[in-house]
Design a protein around this nucleic acid. Structure first.
Lengths: 235, 235
DNA sequence: GTCTATAACGAGATAGAC
DNA sequence: GTCTATCTCGTTATAGAC
């Protein structure tokens, strides 16, 4: 029984993966708005109703693709973070930013799925939140590391933003100064502005040496959050 | 004959506007990927072939909507810029950024059309460039104003970025220091990161007081570009 | 219980004849 | 410009194989 159940489970995992792979292929070709369960089934030699054993609806398939994309991005970012262990927080920040950019360039359609325009008629359920938070948590961790090592220059905050900054800090990182958390959230959004503009073509005929341009912008973002670069090298 | 021709021209303009209005409505409901000439025609009580007298293809209709969106955004930004005449460049910068944000919040689907994921199978022609450049030109103008008034703190550039910064400056604003141009392009992209995150829901349960958060982030962007705030008030 | 296949629904797009 | 015949879609009900 154990082997039979194992075989069933294995087959189920394989078919699920095949469905998602084919769906990703269609994502690239047609976009998320035109993702079609029937087309996926047809391409796999299945009948459309059979897909419902694996995904209860088209939206559930979309949700699975979104979570996979966030997880894939999160893994790349976490790998870059781990690889940079021992380096100054500002360097680790840049390393993670560059990993985000590289993942986006190698997975443009999945990037568009999670950070591009919302899919009409689809609204992401709360189950996507943990995967979506991975990169943010990594960035918070880097700032925390700097804070503990006294390598964080805390930004001054205008009085009007202080309540909001306190609220964000309480939610996201109660051990960090509110000013740093507010700056971090802004930098997080701005990082995706840089990536999105490059990926979606706004830098066409504007920025040519994009890796270098991005590296410098990521540097400046780290600086804006209060991460101090080692004296010997920069800043 | 003059009146007849005038009437014809007027009718043509009216029908063209009606087509674009209906197309915008569908953009909101279905997304750009699903924009269908037939559906537009049906809704207007026309037959699909009649639409081709006004737009030779779906892509041409899309292009017209994109140019309209860029122009509408550009007008809003330019109006905010004009209204801020006399203020310090840093203040004008923030005013323009806030106008971009407000336009995006009131025109979410048109924002998604121009700054969101690319429409699969569609590639924007060069004719969209002038409209797309309006906000960028405005920001360059603000930095230029500061530079002329000696209110621009030019950012130091790492040696690796200098050739690219020079190239960008030669293309975009030969009268400005390359460092300022590079910082400006980055800030421009980052501005849209902030706007996109708010609009596309990434700030859900993260940022609550979004106007204040955005204003502060725009302030910091101005600072990053080298715009100096009047001593009496901020910085 | 787990899965696939057949058939069907209502809605909408599409192509072509007229 | 109109009509119709034929596609697509998401989804469900049902029946039967393993």
């Amino acid at each position: 029984m154990a082997t039979a159940e194992g075989a069933r489970a294995r087959a189920r995992i394989e078919v699920t993966a095949a469905i998602k792979d084919e769906a990703r292929r269609q994502l690239a070709a047609e976009g998320a708005a035109r993702l079609s369960l029937r087309a996926v089934a047809r391409e796999l030699g299945m009948v459309s109703s059979a897909l419902y054993r694996y995904f209860p609806s088209r939206d559930d398939l979309l949700t699975a693709l979104i979570i996979d994309a966030y997880d894939s991005l999160g893994e790349s970012a976490e790998a870059a973070h781990a690889k940079s262990a021992g380096a100054a927080p500002a360097r680790r920040w840049v390393a993670v930013c560059e990993a985000v950019r590289e993942w986006a360039l190698t997975h443009p359609h999945e990037y568009a799925l999670i950070y591009g325009s919302p899919v009409p008629g689809y609204s992401a359920p709360e189950t996507t939140v943990p995967a979506a938070a991975r990169v943010g948590l990594l960035l918070i961790g880097i700032v925390r590391e700097a804070h503990r090592g006294r390598g964080l220059a805390v930004a001054k905050l205008p009085a009007e933003l202080e309540p909001e900054a306190r609220r964000m800090a309480a939610d996201l990182a109660p051990d960090l100064p509110p000013g740093a958390v507010a700056a971090l959230v802004a930098a997080w959004a701005q990082l995706y502005g840089l990536v999105g503009f490059e990926l979606f073509g706004q830098f066409h005929k504007v920025v040519e040496d994009r890796p270098e341009f991005f590296r410098h912008a990521a540097d400046r973002l780290a600086h804006g959050v209060g991460l101090v670069f080692p004296r010997a090298e920069a800043d």
